[in-house]
Amino acid sequence: MALPTRLRNQFLLSMPHLDDPNFAQTLTYICEHGDYGALGLVINRCSGLQLPDLLNHLDLPSGPASLAQHPVYDGGPVHQDRGFVLHPQNAGTWLNTQEITDEIGVTSSLDILEAIAAGQGPDEFIVTLGYAGWGPGQLEEELSNNLWLSCPFNFDIIFRMPAEERLNAAASMLGINLNLLTAHAGHA
């Protein structure tokens, strides 16, 4: 089976036998993938912080009451001191936004958090600390070793589904029940 050459705007689903504590049972959204490697954000692992905690740490107002239970996600093991906001592309204009598609973007500048705290940010968003990164060829090798499955992204899974349901929902898009897969890898 030939592997996709570009996984930008795709989900990566960890296979049950992936025992790396950074990625076991994760769903990762791939923001960038090319000859230089890949960058993604884990979108189903809450960090334990709520958004008002992060905003207060940044000396910003706690924001509207609707943010009180909005989690901050552990986006991956790389640069966990850096924040990223995944949001619909038409949500506004920010200083440092990378357009992933016409539908979705990721912003890493403080101005989007200032807008969120003021109740003027995007209606739908995910805030992560850190990201997942792979060097050239590393992700392709992990895919060939059956550590990951990939599938097209789904807007509703990212923004409108509880974190604990996202991985299984993405697997369902492939017609797979992860609970029925063995934790032992093999090659035919």
Rank of each mutant, 00 (worst) to 15 (best):
H187W: 12
I116W: 03
E99A: 15
C31P: 05
A24I: 09
I116H: 05
G175T: 13
S14V: 14
T182A: 15
L54T: 03
I126N: 12
E141N: 13
V72K: 08
A169F: 04
L58H: 00
G76F: 09
P21A: 03
Q89E: 11
T28Q: 03
G133H: 05
F125C: 08
L110D: 06
A169Q: 10
L86E: 08
D59S: 15
A185P: 00
N177F: 07
T97L: 02
P122K: 05
E99L: 15
A185Y: 02
F84N: 04
L86H: 04
L49A: 04
I158S: 12
L7V: 10
L41I: 12
N56R: 11
W148C: 14
D102H: 14
G133I: 05
A185H: 12
F153I: 08
D81T: 13
T107E: 04
T5D: 15
H33R: 01
G105V: 10
A170F: 05
L13V: 15
T128F: 10
V85I: 13
S172T: 08
D156V: 03
R6I: 01
P122V: 00
P88T: 10
Y131N: 06
I100Q: 00
L129M: 14
D156I: 01
E142A: 11
V78C: 04
E103R: 13
A91C: 14
V78D: 14
P64E: 07
S62I: 01
A91H: 03
E141G: 08
L143N: 11
V42H: 02
L18M: 12
A65M: 07
C151D: 07
A163Q: 05
L54M: 08
T182Y: 00
A38I: 06
F159T: 01
G34P: 11
I104W: 06
I158C: 11
G83S: 09
N90F: 12
Q69Y: 00
S47L: 14
N146A: 11
P88N: 11
A91F: 09
G105P: 10
P61T: 10
V85M: 02
A2R: 13
S66R: 15
L181T: 04
A65V: 12
G40C: 10
P64V: 04
L174D: 03
T93N: 08
L60K: 10
P77S: 12
A68P: 01
N44D: 11
F153S: 15
N44L: 13
L143D: 11
L60V: 05
H33F: 05
S150E: 07
E141S: 15
Q138D: 12
P52I: 02
A118K: 13
N56P: 10
L67A: 03
Y73W: 05
S66E: 14
E140M: 13
E140F: 02
L41R: 01
A91P: 04
Q138C: 08
S66M: 07
